[in-house]
Design a protein around this nucleic acid. Structure first.
Lengths: 147, 147
DNA sequence: GCTTGACCTCAAGTTAGGTTGAGCTTGTAG
DNA sequence: CTACAAGCTCAACCTAACTTGAGGTCAAGC
């Protein structure tokens, strides 16, 4: 196989839609990796595009960089991730993602359901009850996904 | 009907599971409202519990306080929201929520799909392609929901 | 060989979303 | 009536996630 052409930071920025400074930042946080040319410039493998795409989509739905980094740690250090590698990450996230989806549906449908209770009978509201139950359990703020 | 009993800030904090300081903060941002007793203490109507519940669930899926506040602005100022009021908010959010759900599913299923491409044929990856298309359009960061 | 645009590092600034603490007031229970 | 938990305000601080700017290097075209 011909060696896959490497990308400069500017090319990655353009293709991924994130700023160069953000790519530097992600690298500092261990989310992406690069090696350097003789002249100390970053060069990226193609898999960085997938990583950045995942970072952006994940962030959009409220997953923190720390959580993304933790998930990415299941990926191999030295080589390009294989299907098994991504599969591991996928299953690691599956539950958390399903939970988020459920939350969104609850929000969407909860609002709809609230039309039925009209806030006159708030004790029946599924949203409120969920939170109130948490309160009774003495639970504070909660994070989704991996603890 | 008997007048619904009002809640102190501490009671709202306990029942909703958010800190008193956060409630003050939300009030400063116009997300919730209170009136004051003769002694300058906050008193909340019952609908504040629903608002806080919505705030928390919405935040968990990556919706900013500004966006929540914007949505809440469709709610009436002076009176307890009716079913029509919440309905308006619901329909205002519906598209954004559906989009978020789609994003999450794409992330979840995209990762699964990536098992098929194994990052060897990254040009076929639905995640990467989506971002790359954005890049070609010269698009920068994007926010969901109302602009 | 020099100019120009893309890179580099590192420090400081920014916005969101709160928390913490000081100093003072309220209200309820003994 | 007095103790003391709960409230109040306001300013300062905090983390996450970046951006901006200063000051200097690299490399491709003319």
């Amino acid at each position: 196989m011909a060696p896959v052409k490497e990308l400069t930071v500017g090319q990655v920025a353009m293709r991924s839609g994130v700023a160069v400074s953000a790519l530097h930042f992600y690298e500092g946080r261990g989310l992406i990796r690069s090696h350097r040319t003789a002249g100390n410039q970053r060069r990226y493998g193609r898999d960085v595009l997938r990583r950045v795409a995942i970072i952006r989509v994940a962030q959009e739905v409220g997953i923190s960089l720390a959580e993304i980094a933790a998930a990415f740690h299941s990926l191999p250090e030295g080589r390009t991730p294989t299907r098994e590698d991504w599969n591991l990450l996928s299953t690691a996230w599956r539950d958390g993602l399903d939970h988020k989806i459920a939350q969104l549906k609850k929000l969407r449908d909860g609002l709809t359901d609230c039309i039925g209770c009209g806030c006159m009978s708030i004790d029946k509201c599924p949203l409120r009850n969920k939170e109130d139950r948490l309160a009774r359990e003495g639970t504070g703020a909660r994070r989704l996904l991996v603890p």
